[in-house]
Design a protein around this nucleic acid. Structure first.
Lengths: 186, 186
DNA sequence: CGCTCGTGAGAACGTGCGTTCTCACGGCCC
DNA sequence: GGGCCGTGAGAACGCACGTTCTCACGAGCG
């Protein structure tokens, strides 16, 4: 029966979309390449995602949840709330050092499509809001103010962008040091 | 004589390219729209810029120099070196509040084309390096270390991205406050 | 005055790609 | 076993757009 693999097909499509869109940008990847990479025939691709924009949005939504899940698992593993914030930057450093790292998928998508697609702009805004929200939780748990949390978010954001453009994971350590300093003042 | 307006045509073309590319992204603006907006006929556009990629690169190069010139004029107007660094963030805040602000043109271009065009990736890297270099000058003049300069750059970078995505100029003030704190520790 | 050469306006060409259509195939139900 | 329906593979369509070509025009020169 075919309906069985509907979910697997969806996963395969999203896997292909994620690796291709992230590596090369949305507009330089055609639906045909999604098809050949995923093995999901075009017809079913369009059953699952009525248009390319739908696939793009689903890609962003899934990546949002995966990314944040991975980060929170890593940081929350530290029992001491004071150590969870530096751990965020450690996690970033590992991410930056991964082969194929090319910055924040959401920032990239925003630059590419934010001006022409409100759906993309919203997905990006939601992702960043979720990240700031998580950081705010960590910060208040560690005894910091919301203002500090906002500053830590800026450091992380700047580190991601700078690491992408320079191709070096060093910004993670610089941001971590600044975060520690700001944290120690509160 | 036609050769007279070669420079004016070039300027008009770059003006149109800048406003259109920045507002909507490179790939959603066609050469024909550059033509109609600038008034420069297609033939001459292709004399000035043999391909769209050349126009894109020229757009980035000119914006790099204009952007940095505007920033340095603003910050260097402050006699006290200690005040120049906060002034950078004041300048950012004014920029963020401008109508049509849509983040850093270079970060946007990187997300759109960085993976497929080395020329764009290089232009972006050069721009960010120039910015960091300027900030490093300001920082050492104010008695800070290179490490501090790097952290200030991350704050600025994060503020730009966050302001773009949230549509609010508030990140400039948050980054300014963090910068002042870090500066006061050195 | 006629010839030439560069220009401007816009048509035309080629390609890439999002989306849809064709058609033969293979299970499933009566 | 025979019609029916969904499937897979891929061709086909339509459009957008980068790039080039056509052609009529007007200035400069012998």
């Amino acid at each position: 029966m075919a309906t069985v693999d509907l979910e697997t097909a969806r996963t395969a499509a999203l896997d292909a979309a994620e690796s291709l869109f992230y590596a090369r940008g949305v507009q330089s990847v055609g639906m045909d390449e999604i098809r050949s990479t995923s093995g999901v025939p075009l017809k079913r691709l369009y059953q699952l995602f009525p248009s390319k924009s739908d696939l793009v949005e689903a890609y962003l939504r899934r990546r949002d949840s995966d990314w944040l899940t991975s980060l929170t698992h890593y940081a929350d593993a530290h029992a001491d709330p004071q150590q969870r914030i530096p751990a965020v930057f450690d996690w970033l450093e590992q991410w930056f050092a991964e082969p194929g790292f090319r910055g924040c998928a959401f920032v990239n998508a925003f630059g590419e499509l934010g001006a022409t697609s409100p759906a993309v702009a919203n997905a990006v805004a939601d992702h960043k809001a979720a990240f700031r929200h998580y950081l705010a939780d960590l910060t208040t748990t560690a005894g910091g103010t919301p203002a500090l949390a906002a500053q830590l978010a800026l450091l992380a954001e700047g580190a991601i962008t700078t690491a992408a453009i320079t191709g070096s994971p060093a910004p993670a350590r610089q941001a971590r040091a600044a975060a520690q300093l700001l944290l120690s003042l509160s």
